[in-house]
Design a protein around this nucleic acid. Structure first.
Lengths: 284, 284
DNA sequence: TAGTGTGAACCTATTCACAGCC
DNA sequence: GGCTGTGAATAGGTTCACACTA
């Protein structure tokens, strides 16, 4: 449960450890507003809220009006204690002995996640993946309209993809500013990614979803999330390997008095190439 | 930092809390082999090892033969203490006062991640995303050869995509078994995902990378990782919202003696639709 | 009675800081 | 002097278990 699949590569939020210095500065007024609360929601919980939201939408589609934490937990693939705690971060919207009203919960989670506002999206790099993102009908539908596409291939400029004409990378700043893009998706090869990122930032984009296999350098007011297929694959690979080792170890009933520990002819292949499983995503 | 971008939706590794019951069962032999160690590496560290590996490959390409933890940490976007600790889980391959030999580290990380073995990949759902994955040249190159593609669209069956002919979904079990697929990538709409998953598992696949927005049900010996664009977007959205709230709160210099806490006309939009930002990825 | 909300215990992960070594 | 490797301290997240309430 790394919950880190697509890890955030945040710039090491080290600096100002505790912005809100004292717990209760003046013991007078109970200042904590909803504002304060946003600060307080653990990262891990935020990620799950999005998952709950999907589960809830599914329930709403089936005209379910009420769920218990147990039911919702199952639908979302977590345990109910965690779910309740997560929900408690956004407030008390359940009814004891009954459960949660689906519509209320949807509303509250949307509010918390800031989904009550549209976020214009720009996709940069209209290669295979960029195409997929841009073409993708459900994408612009609601919540995250794709409002700009960029590439540097002259053959692509002006060509509409998913209904939106591709602009040139050189126009990122201008177009993003004009169209008030808030989320930039980088689907370029690794080489161009930092450059693209800089331009997006210059164009006022404060959130970036990065598919390129590079660690982006951004100012601290910009949020980057990274999705890395190579990393995902390699993590899976690790688990295969571990399982094989365990299986091999199981066969160690033979040697409780282990006679040297050489590779027991099981899964121990010779190191090979593989060198650039990493480069995998580069051309996506 | 959430490191959960593409979260693992692991089946709640609750059951057998401590498999290795006693620390040192028999005080005789020092049994801990490399085997034991794999168990011990924290999930979070595994994910980062993959990142380090990429950084190291980059260095190797530039003919750098030695790195310090500081240098590598910068390249990988983490801090050096974390990096050293992570590396310590796989052994002591550095030289004090000097640093790490790039080639050695690459070899060791690859070994740890099980990359010394090829992992056949099957992609199911040759829509936009599936196409992207299959077409993608760097993908099959090394480490993770794509050896099977599946879809249910009759028009696609037999058509080669990225050099591999698409098979029908009904043949998943047969083909996966034949070609010894170990990693299955699900890029279908949500509806079909569980069904596809079941077949992959029946075909001997033990690792699944799931792009479909559903919580897959799998036997406990199967590892699932999930990549969910909608969730990523929503997490970014949350951070935009939080920032806006902070900005708004900053404007609260006016009321240190806060006169009621109503929404100060800042970022408080009215809840809207958005309802299915969730459904976003469905057609990917 | 059924199920939420939450303090407290527990476990995992990150950071610190320094001993040990080249 | 510089840098690794690692215990110890801290922070962050999860689970437990139960008081509370509709």
């Amino acid at each position: 449960m790394t919950a880190d699949g697509a890890d955030v590569q945040d710039g090491d939020g080290q600096a100002e450890a505790d912005s809100r210095t004292e717990p209760k500065q003046s013991p007078e007024i109970e200042v904590p507003a909803a504002r304060e609360r946003a600060r307080a929601i653990p990262e891990a919980a935020v990620a799950r809220l999005a998952v709950y939201l999907r589960a809830l939408s599914g329930l709403a589609d089936q005209n379910v009006s009420t769920v218990s934490s147990d039911e919702l937990a199952v639908a979302a693939g977590v345990n109910s204690a965690k779910l309740r705690k997560d929900l408690s971060y956004i407030g008390s919207y359940g009814t004891r002995g009954v459960g949660y009203e689906v519509s209320v919960l949807i509303g509250q989670i949307e509010r918390t996640l800031g989904l009550t506002r549209k976020h214009s999206v720009a996709v940069v790099g209209i290669g295979n993946l960029g195409h997929a993102l841009a073409n993708y009908g459900g994408f612009p539908s609601r919540g995250f309209p794709v409002s700009a596409l960029f590439d540097l291939d002259p053959d692509l400029i002006g060509v509409p993809v998913g209904g939106i004409p591709v602009s040139h990378i050189d126009d990122i700043v201008k177009v993003c500013t004009e169209r008030e893009v808030t989320i930039g998706v980088i689907a370029t090869p690794a080489q161009g990614a930092q450059e693209v990122c800089d331009r997006l930032v210059a164009g006022g984009v404060t959130c970036i979803l990065n598919f390129a296999p590079v660690v982006l350098q951004v100012p601290e007011n910009v949020e980057v999330r990274k999705v890395d297929l190579a990393v995902e694959m390699q993590i899976l690979s690790f688990h295969v390997a571990r399982r094989q080792q365990e299986a091999a170890a199981e066969a160690d009933q033979s040697a409780v008095d282990g006679a040297d520990i050489g590779p027991p002819g099981s899964g121990g292949q010779v190191p090979g190439d593989v060198e650039s499983a990493d480069r995998m995503v580069e051309r996506l």
